[in-house]
Simulated assay, not measured.
Amino acid sequence: MKLGLQLGYWAAQPPTNHAELVAAAEEAGFDTVFTAEAWGSDAYTPLAWLGRETRRLRLGTSVVQLSARTPTACAMAALTLDHLSGGRHILGLGVSGPQVVEGWYGQRFAKPLARTREYIDILRQVWAREAPVTSAGPHYPLPLSGEGTTGLGKALKPIVHPLRADIPIMLGAEGPKNIALAAEICDGWLPIFYSPRLAPMYNEWLDEGFARPCARRSREDFEICATAQVMVTDDRAATMAAVKPFLALYMGGMGAEGTNFHADVYRRMGYAEVVDDVTRLFRSGCKDEAAAIIPDEAVDDSAIIGDLNYVRAQIPVWEAAGVTMMVVTAGSAAQIRDLADLV
């Protein structure tokens, strides 16, 4: 089992201790540090800024949003960071949701699976640098031609020779078809609310992707880097209560009311009625009440919270379920060292 540090995206102000956390993670033997983006800070700038002081940690995005960059712009950012880090970059991608894609980026959300496949094909063409990059579309046609264009577009290869012709790609996926796609065309999966209890269901979806004719990986060399709230505490009830507002936001407030992929994850876990009630309360402004009705079992399904012996016993459960890396958050260097000692 490997450990990853999730720095996430910034809140209202830039964090002040991320450099300390990254240094502690490198010293403690963590495998990867991840950054994220929503509709505030971007993922690449902090990752490059913080990664410059590291020598061993892999530098991952978990995740960058497809609609934030054209495929070639994303490929350029990835190959640049891969050079700067000496081949330590992991590109974690996600489609986000229609509320953000259409409301923030001004892009169309339709056909996310087809868009992801086409996007990743272009990324790999750029990095392989075997020929000028072309795509028949329909989502990212290159060169662009037709009505409204000059007709002068030219297929190009990147000026910079990529350090690696095949930078690892991981997909942030939550639904069955997207998880199968990750297994088929990517090098890893980045689940945000992973539940070991549902491993047989996840494995069925992953196996569907692995079985496809052109699958890149098998279960033996595919990474599952699962976000995991791992909290060592003697006051389990209070810590559970502190986590529930975060779950209420994702369960009830992320995305459009009828299209919330995070909520769908908890529906699959068996909490459909809870999701409906949390959504109703959260969207009516009763956020504290929404958090309060989330049962402890829903927290337990995707987190490890308890005393030292409990946490130590649960980590092998996640590993047995197929998780190859636990992606954790931490507020201090001491927490990072404690987590490293557990694993």
Rank of each mutant, 00 (worst) to 15 (best):
K2M: 03
L3E: 11
W10M: 04
A11K: 14
Q13K: 14
A19N: 03
L21A: 02
L21G: 06
V22E: 02
V22Y: 05
F30H: 09
D31M: 01
F34V: 01
T35Q: 02
A38N: 15
W39Y: 13
G40S: 14
G40N: 15
S41W: 05
A43C: 14
R55F: 02
T61P: 04
S62L: 12
R69Y: 15
T70G: 13
P71A: 03
P71Y: 07
L79P: 10
T80V: 05
D82C: 04
D82Q: 05
H83S: 00
H83I: 01
R88F: 05
H89P: 05
L93V: 02
L93H: 00
G94I: 06
S96F: 03
P98T: 06
G103M: 12
Y105Q: 12
F109H: 04
K111W: 10
P112V: 01
L113M: 09
R115V: 00
E118K: 04
Y119G: 03
Y119K: 05
I120K: 07
D121V: 06
Q125R: 15
R129I: 07
G137T: 00
P138S: 13
H139L: 02
P141F: 08
L142S: 04
L144H: 10
L144S: 08
G146I: 07
E147W: 02
T150S: 15
G151Y: 05
K154D: 12
L156Y: 11
V160I: 14
D166C: 05
P168G: 08
L171I: 09
G172M: 06
K177E: 15
L181F: 08
A182V: 02
A183W: 07
D187M: 01
L190Y: 09
I192V: 13
I192L: 15
I192G: 12
I192E: 13
Y194E: 00
S195R: 03
P196D: 11
R197Y: 07
A199F: 13
M201W: 15
N203V: 06
E204Q: 14
W205E: 07
L206Q: 11
E208W: 03
F210D: 06
C214P: 00
S218I: 09
A226P: 10
Q229V: 12
V230I: 15
V232A: 10
T233P: 13
A237C: 08
M240R: 10
A242E: 15
K244H: 07
Y250N: 01
G252W: 12
M254T: 13
G255A: 10
A256F: 11
E257I: 12
N260C: 07
H262K: 03
H262R: 02
A263Y: 02
D264P: 05
V265H: 02
R268M: 14
M269E: 09
E273T: 11
V278T: 06
R280C: 10
C286E: 15
D288S: 13
E289D: 14
I293Q: 03
I294T: 11
P295H: 06
P295K: 00
P295I: 01
D296L: 08
V299K: 08
V299L: 07
D300A: 10
D301L: 04
S302E: 05
S302G: 04
A303K: 00
I304K: 10
G306Y: 03
L308M: 11
N309E: 15
A313G: 07
P316N: 11
E319T: 12
A320G: 13
G322A: 13
M326S: 09
S332P: 02
S332H: 03
Q335G: 14
L342G: 12
V343C: 15
